[in-house]
Design a protein around this nucleic acid. Sequence first.
RNA 1: GCCGAAGUGGCGGAAUUGGUAGACGCGCACGACUCAAAAUCGUGUAUCGUAAGGUGUGUGGGUUCGAUUCCCACCUUCGGUACCA
Length: 977
Amino acid sequence: MEYNFKKIEDDWKKIWERDEVYKVTEDPTKPKYYVLDMFPYPSGAGLHVGHPLGYVASDIYARYKRLNGYNVLHPMGWDAFGLPAEQYAIETGTHPAITTDAAIKRYRQQMDKIGFSFDWSREVRTCEPDYYKWTQWIFLKLYNSWYNRETNKAESIDTLIDKLSADSTWEAKTVAEKQHELMNYRLAFQSYSEVNWCAALGTVLANDEIKDGKSERGGHPIERRKMRQWFLRITEYSDRLLDGLDKLDWSDAMKEMQRNWIGRSEGASVQFQIPNSKFQIEVFTTRPDTIFGATFIVIAAEHELVDELTTVEQKVEIEKYISYVKSKTDVERQQEKKVTGVFTGSYAVNPFTKENIPVYIAEYVLGGYGTGAIMAVPADDERDKKFAEKFGLPIIEVIDKSMHPGATIEDKVGKMINSGFVDGMEVKDAIKAVIAEIEKRGIGTKKVNYKQRDAGYSRQRYWGEPFPIQYKIVGQPDPPFAGGETDDIPVPLHGDKLPLILPEVSSYKPSGDGRAPLANNKDWVAAGYETDTMPGYAASSWYFLRYMDPKNNNEFAAKDKMEYWQNVDIYFGGAEHAVGHLLYSRFWNMFLYDLGLVPFEEPFKKLVNQGMIQGVSQFILKDKSNDPSKETRTNFARYVNHNKILSLHNIDPNKIYPVYYSSDIAVDCSDLAKKLPYNLPDGLPYSSYHVDIRYVKDNILDVPSLVAANPKYMGSVFATKAGYYLDGEFYSYKDAPQNASRDFITDSAVEKMSKSKYNVVNPDDVIDKYGADCFRMFELFLGPIEQSKPWDDKGISGVSNFLKKFWRLFYDEKGWKVSDETPTDAEFKILHKTIKKIGEDIERLNFNTSVSAFMIATNELGALKCNKHAILEPLLITLAPFAPFITEELWSALDNKGSIHQAMFPKVEESYLTESEHTYGVSINGKVRAEIKLPLDITAQEAEKQVLELESVKKWTNGNAPKKFIFVKGKIINVVV
RNA sequence: GCCGAAGUGGCGGAAUUGGUAGACGCGCACGACUCAAAAUCGUGUAUCGUAAGGUGUGUGGGUUCGAUUCCCACCUUCGGUACCA
């Protein structure tokens, strides 16, 4: 009987769904295990072969845990709010809900084909009111909470009000004043702040949505703009987010990225007095030890004292400089390596040297970090040094590094010099001593600074959660009323009014004045609702909690269910979320934990970052000039005579007919180009274009079918070494070189899989051809799960062959051949060796070597002609997590009741694995020269005697006693001569 | 610049604690079956050498009886990040 994967997979898919095989409920009699995937954004393009890699891995892990008696929560859902659906809506007018729903259906179909064991009864969709009701609810909790630094946790805003009420001035304040004051504490708060405004997208972007100064999506330019925005006070959690990392089983790379993002640095803040004035400049420094070398102060262009410090004489120049700094975009500021700055005209007093030191403004000091002012120590800081050199400022050496050759000027090593009371101290001690002195004199304190900023939480978009906020204009009655202006007070919606449903709008475009698309709905605006929506990370910051209790209408998740499931045991997802989603989720979870709403502080115990499967893009090379008359391009003319082609085919020379060159011609030409006595204008006169990989096999383009499917290539010439294709027909050159190839060869490159690069491989196609089991195992067989690699289906036949071979252990042409004979020890050994290996591999996530272990077992059993039930059935269970369909089919053929996926993973019988002998490799001076089989319990003396008897060893020892004899039991023997 | 990961046959990769480098698969070659092809099965396949033997895990050095594995320096690639004081 043949292995008919199509029928098997279709049948079992239906049965699993009918019998709810993967449905899970809380069961206190079983240990729980929570296996989670980062839920996808359902894009219109569907899944490509890269997406399922992590899902396949997590599916195997979940199935394995289930077979080992765990009650496994393994859910899936949709991160359904997002920009692509909204932009499609702007282009076509289709409501994003419709697009999103269609995309989800498509994804679901593709996923079902692969045979995942998700409990779909727990599916969540973040764009559904049932879900975002709770996103809004949590936002209100954040709004109504503050961070109590004394108890070191978030508390209800009421405890803050109690505290503030103790001060008699509090009661005297107006409602508005009180609200403004509280805004300084709320964990979700509003503030005017410079934001990253993207004009092209009409929205504000978070720092991590920006790459190289441009929007991550679309690559549009970003400018700084002051706007009133919602923020989350994540900085209150910086320390806990940092400390919590130590307890997590995440890769070091991932932890480092979060640490760098949080960017904690310890130092001191110090006041520098401006002589004869009430002003002081507060600087932040991580190197208080070097304060004796501080010879000038630099403040940011945005610093609040700029006006006060600018003297009359310097005013014009300072204003010019500030407008110069502001005119530059972030990109330009980054590219600019020139040292710039202007003297304010004022001086400050170095509190230790008592010298008057000049105050400068320079763009290398940022307004947003630290205090926006630094004490510059040119002897120990690269940038300060460059600045001092350019402006002729004094450089005082304060650290003797002669004992540390090779140390950079910024390394914290050496002995203090020229530094008053700390002279002779080591840098480490000097830092402490200076801080102590600063604190003693009351001119500063020890301080910790973070790079991390509070997280922007407003988006000028339509397709997101509405804020459950109305605005109250000061002096007016309660909502509803018109809002949106600058002095109004946000009023949170009452919890029982949630969800606040996302309204319909007349246009999905931003209103044009910087306000969100919701401003296009008059009723919405009239009711005073906030017109911004929440960012993408809102919903994804807590979805893992909702899976535990997805249908609950009274709570985001019931306490007892969270108590049962606890946090995610293993989380699979891409490394690109290191500082976005993974940081925000930890923050939200910690917050909910502080309020006693969640029973665990960290949401994700173990993290696995699957690598990306990239696409192999194919390029065709197009003649750049498109001008057929220029015979001067002698290099190409060797193969293609444009004019000849034109006249042969009666083509109008004025008509545009692009010529594409096979890349082997281009390679020839680049060789040729090197030999030319002159340079070609801009490199070689061709440019690369992506071509759909469907028409390319092994870098050879199928020109006729490409042209047949794409009318735009009609009339184009595809030149190869032997001839050319025109409208899909091949014509040879009369003088073509002997044996020249007709193949049109493409160029290739590994890139991210994407529709626009025409390099997408659809899993459906692979599954149709080889089956889902094969697809799953092949993805894993490609290499280690954490490694990125290009998709290459060359090896897929190996996995396909394996499945067929495996099938043939049960069936041959004549039919069923499984016997009830008692297996031999050798057969048992193969079985138990495999059980052990697979169990260990899954725990370590070494799925690629598991696949090879199955191949080995199948080959070995095949060689022994073993078709015995007692071997095959346990083996089948070990394979079930990897290949759920074929194993289920064979399981039922073995006359088992119920699903194999609810069976028990077999136990390893060590007795079959213990060896009494070992074949030792015998090395002479570390090089393996011989082999010898010895009993495992042999003594070193006896082994030495036997080894030295070997002819192949005697040859090296010449019969002499060895210098040394190394015997490592069960491993190796080494003879030193 | 800084932080992190990696570099092994023609290719994807294996070697889990310092102990027989190249498992498994692809590709390739040869053979069997076939009128033939496909499919399937078998054999071989790091490299130089007829062989004995030599060489070999990015490069150079070191520790060790023994190094893909540990240490030092360097090169390359990929990810992250950046006037962060």
